[in-house]
């Protein structure tokens, strides 16, 4: 009998094993000075990464992280069925231009900072559906490219409010396969776009928290789980403000998350010592924290079952200038390693 893969309203259960067989992370110097430094594969001290512009540097980071993930398991580009990637820039140029140098059929994705988990979901669906055996995925962000596109030139003397987040410079890549040894993606919940009318471009956390709450509540209902079912609930880049908002929102819905809840944006930096205000953000944030730190913890069996949720703020400078509110989205995957 065919096993039902769709679970409840928004969730899916994967029938085939979806194994994370390789990962790679490339980060910049600020991330390399943070508490997770020793979990990254490559710390690039030069913000330009030897390139002519920050955009080219970000592109190179994405390309290098994807290639490194392949090199680690001795696979060639021709062994891979699809490459999925995305970033924060207009027309996702980092991903598109990186894919130019990677001879694998390519899907470009945009989910703002949720892109990494969006890519994990799509990759898992491709494999489980029998359309692929191996899928490579990556997402990146760069502090300077993001600041310039979304906020102010870096040399402009602008004060950042305490709720502002620091865009992570870095790229994370994963290789997902239908067999092998490693942590497995077992379930997923696809998020809806939620807009609670927030407009502050210096407070992405609050704009995204309602989407995170919605996806989490739907996940718990669809799958019959609760926050206690997971060793770790991990959000991508809500930061200190968004995290606090999410905890309150979940309380209102009757769910208590406590010790087992962490946010990548708060893990990647030392919030006390590094001048990053509310924490890290960007496509690269969840990507490098998961590819490095979290996978290591899974391999070391510190966690056996985690719920990994990445949130994205789906605004553009144009929509912001026109006074539009900031819609948010959150996608979730369950990763297990027994």
């Amino acid at each position: 009998m065919e096993i039902e893969k769709k679970v409840g309203q928004q969730s899916i259960r994967f029938v085939k094993p979806i194994v994370i067989t390789s990962s790679a992370s490339v980060v910049g110097s600020t991330e390399g000075a943070g508490p997770l430094a020793d979990t990254f594969d490559w710390i690039v001290e030069d913000l330009l990464f030897g390139e002519q512009s920050w955009e080219k540097a970000e592109c190179k980071m994405l390309r290098e992280s994807a290639k490194l993930a392949l090199r680690k398991v001795n696979l060639q580009e021709k062994d891979i069925d699809y490459f999925l990637a995305g970033d924060l820039l207009n027309q996702i140029i980092s991903a598109n231009y990186a894919a130019r140098g990677i001879a694998i059929p390519f899907f470009g994705l945009f989910g703002a900072c949720s892109t990494f988990v969006e890519a994990m979901l799509v990759a898992s669906i491709l494999i489980d559906g029998g359309f692929a055996r191996r899928v490579l995925l990556a997402s990146s962000s760069h502090h300077n490219t993001a600041e310039r596109q979304y906020r102010f030139p870096t040399e402009q003397g602008v004060q950042r409010p305490p709720s502002a987040q620091w865009t992570v410079t870095g790229s994370g890549a994963l290789l997902l396969e239908e067999s092998g040894n490693g942590p497995r993606v077992t379930m997923g919940t696809v998020g809806k776009v939620i807009d609670m009318g927030m407009t502050d471009a210096n407070d992405m956390g609050s704009a995204m928290a309602p989407a995170a709450a919605d996806t989490l509540v739907n996940h718990f209902q669809d799958t019959g789980t609760n926050p206690g079912s997971y060793d770790l609930i991990l959000t991508g880049d809500l930061g200190a403000v968004g995290k606090a908002a999410l905890i309150k929102l979940l309380q209102q819905r009757g769910y208590r998350v406590g010790e087992n809840y962490h946010d990548c944006g708060m893990l990647i930096y030392d919030l006390e010592k590094q001048d990053v205000h509310s924490g890290g953000s960007g496509c690269g944030c969840a990507a490098v924290v998961f590819s490095g730190h979290i996978l290591r913890q899974l391999w070391e069996k510190k966690y056996r079952k985690i719920l990994f949720l990445a949130t994205g703020a789906l605004m553009s400078p144009t929509s912001a200038q026109q006074g539009e509110t900031i819609p948010g989205i959150a996608h979730a995957v369950v990763v297990e390693f027994n």
Binding site: F152, V158, Q159, T199, D200, N202, D203, A320
Partner: peptide
């Protein structure tokens, strides 16, 4: 003016 008004006030 910056600190007490809306966040969309830029330089």
């Amino acid at each position: 003016f910056i600190d007490l008004t809306r966040s969309s006030v830029t330089p």
